[in-house]
């Protein structure tokens, strides 16, 4: 059982959906980003997605594009991203880290070197946005060989013909993209998401996490009722952006604002499971 499998088993036992949080590694700078990463589990993140910044994130909306560029401008690179994972893992053995990004930085780093280093650093899974099943043969088996889950995206356009190919060799969980669009733009339509998720569930026993366009506790609560997890990304990196000074540097508010938002969203899930015993109240 991987750390991701264990997490979903625990969530099932607790009777609630999990909160999956996305931040970009190195945004707005290495130290702040690492410190926020370390704070995410205590704030309520059940799984952490760590973005590997790329200059041309073609499936991402303005918030994550800007976040990637801030990280790159601050000197982030693949080596530093993996070193963040290593630092996080020194203190936390329970919370899964999923590395999310585009293929080119991995290809240039070297596939074998990447899966070895990512696994040794303590990463648990990979989401490679621009690597559909048709093109994943040079990365997926190598990742599996190092015990990394390979998590695929299913989307509203993934029709019945494609779904089996998308689900084959997917492990850890399925990431359901709730809108036909880019990250952080339109809000998902709950009823159509429900129908799509039910269709996927008919084909797999894997947990499903729903993401793209999730911003509010209400959305988190509604989507969590349909699946095993909810992913929040653009709203989090946008909250980072709001706290930066005029030179784009982190301020004293950056970390507390991000973690505060994570806590606020996480409460929705705890209320869903056990009313009146929210994490914030317990704290």
């Amino acid at each position: 059982m991987t750390r991701i499998d264990q997490t979903f088993a625990r969530l099932k036992a607790e009777g609630r959906g999990g909160l999956v949080t996305f931040i970009t590694a190195g945004d707005p700078d290495y130290e702040t980003s690492l410190s926020m990463l370390k704070g995410l589990p205590a704030a309520g993140a059940d799984i952490v997605e760590l973005g590997m910044p790329f200059s041309d994130p073609m499936a991402d909306g303005p918030a994550i594009q800007a976040s990637s560029l801030r990280a790159l401008k601050a000197g982030q690179n693949m080596k530093k991203t993996l070193s963040m994972v290593r630092e996080f893992r020194k203190e936390n053995q329970a919370t899964p880290i999923v590395l999310m990004g585009y293929y080119n930085p991995i290809y240039v780093y070297g596939v074998d070197r990447f899966v070895t280093d990512a696994s040794e650093a303590g990463a648990d899974g990979l989401i490679i946005v621009d690597m559909p099943p048709e093109e994943d043969e040079e990365l997926r088996p190598a990742a599996a060989g190092k015990g990394l889950n390979f998590i695929r995206l299913a989307t509203p356009t993934t029709d019945a013909r494609r779904l089996p190919a998308v689900l084959a060799n997917t492990s850890g969980f399925v990431y359901y993209v709730s809108i036909a669009g880019i990250t952080g733009t339109a809000a998902p339509d709950i009823s159509s998401v429900g129908a799509h998720v039910a269709r996927i569930k008919a084909h797999t026993d894997l947990p499903i996490a729903i993401g793209f366009g999730v911003k509010t506790p209400e959305q988190v609560r509604e989507l969590a009722a349909l699946a095993e997890g909810v992913v929040v990304g653009s709203a989090l990196v946008a909250s980072i952006a709001e706290t930066l000074d005029e030179n784009g540097q982190a301020t004293a508010e950056t970390k507390p604002k991000l973690l505060g938002l994570v806590e606020y969203l996480s409460e929705a899930l705890h209320q869903l499971a056990e009313p009146r015993r929210s994490r914030a109240a317990a704290a």
Partner: peptide, 22 residues
């Protein structure tokens, strides 16, 4: 048939676009 010219080419796109390019 997969759109490759030797090492090059292919279909490295997000899943949302895959059904469209097919």
């Amino acid at each position: 048939e997969h759109g490759h010219f030797g090492l090059f080419g292919g279909r490295y796109v997000a899943e949302t676009l895959m059904p469209l390019i097919l």
